[in-house]
Simulated assay, not measured.
Amino acid sequence: MPPTLKLQQALPWLALALATWWLVGRLAPVLFPLLLALVLAYVLAPLVQWLHARRVPRWLGAGLALALVCTLLLALVLIIVPVIVKQWPLLREQIPALLERLNAWLVPHARRLGLDIAVDVDGVRQLLRSLLSGHEEQVLAHLLSSLRIGGSLLVAVLGNAVLMPVVAYYLLLDWPALGARVQALVPPRWRAALGSWWAETDAVLGQYLRGQLLVMGALAVYYAVALRLVGLDLALPVGVFTGLAVFVPYVGFGVGLVLALLAALLQFADPWSVAAVAAVYGVGQVLESFVLTPRWVGERIGLHPVAVIFALMAFGHLFGFVGVLLALPASAVALVALRRLQALYLSSPLFGPPPARGE
């Protein structure tokens, strides 16, 4: 086929791709909850299929799967929120006491160096008193005013929260037929290659999701139990949060560690208890990095740690926090494509030996 003819055939596809990219950018706020619903349906589809194979109707299986997800989220909220609400007023008394202990240690060491350094505990106490008590009515009025001003945003958030499970439910009902319709749109000459690529990608993503859920559950139990053994009052919410937050690599562990150390500093009077909390997280990181993740996740995906860090930074820069969440699954899909490109390159004449003389 002449190059000019190939270019003429490629131009309509290029124009279609650019128009699709522009349309997706314009409709991003509308498409985002639909995309989340599609991801939720993809995650729950194997469970619904498993129930359907055991003679559970798809409509009932989809409802049970979504009800399970909603129940888990509700249980997480009921575990964490009451403890935070109970502990929040105590910060007004705990933080000044912590700063006084810091002053008792800092001032003598600073004087030895000829420095006059001290934390203004009274000023911090007054600031906390103004923030945490005495102005609840003003805060509530300001909150209600903000909700009235941003009413459309609030309605959009609540609407998306209701819309996502509804869309996911209908997608789960029609999941096999939806896959067949998408496959029917693929040109016949490409179906074998794309079908093989999708089967490999689906296997990698499925292994990643199952392995990640196992790691999250195991670490949530470990952190909650270990922090309780060292005497931390907030062991359950902080431990469960840390275990579930490891879904965001490095970031989740770091946030959990900061929360645990802050809670330990506010509760304990001796540094050894704080060190015990830090040791719990050190053991947990070793357990995650060298036992759980390599066995249940890492070997199934095959991403190098440097590639993981780069993917997190790149997706976070491009798409924000949602990009951090999607970095590893998207990298797993890209890894499958790169493997295919590598195999194509290794079998191409470009990589092969040069032709013999006379050919």
Rank of each mutant, 00 (worst) to 15 (best):
S146I: 02
L115N: 05
I117P: 00
L173D: 05
W88F: 13
L128I: 12
L73F: 04
S152R: 10
Y170P: 03
L72C: 08
D174S: 15
S145T: 10
L106C: 03
L154V: 06
S130F: 09
R111H: 11
W88V: 08
V167N: 09
L76M: 15
H142D: 13
R101S: 08
V157Y: 04
A75D: 09
Y169N: 06
V162N: 07
A104S: 12
W105F: 14
A156I: 07
D122N: 12
G114Q: 05
D116P: 02
L115G: 03
P82Q: 03
A104G: 11
E136G: 13
V124Y: 02
A118L: 02
I117G: 00
Q94D: 08
A110K: 01
L91P: 11
N103F: 10
A118Y: 01
A168Y: 00
L154A: 10
R111F: 02
L113H: 03
I84R: 10
W88A: 14
I79N: 09
V77Q: 12
S133V: 10
H142T: 14
P96C: 10
N160V: 03
L102Y: 11
L131V: 12
E137R: 04
N103S: 01
A118Q: 06
L140E: 15
L144T: 11
W88K: 15
L102I: 10
W88C: 03
L163F: 09
R92P: 01
D116M: 05
K86V: 13
H135D: 11
L132C: 03
L78D: 15
A104R: 15
E136A: 13
V157G: 03
R111I: 08
G151T: 00
E136W: 05
Q87F: 07
K86F: 13
D122L: 02
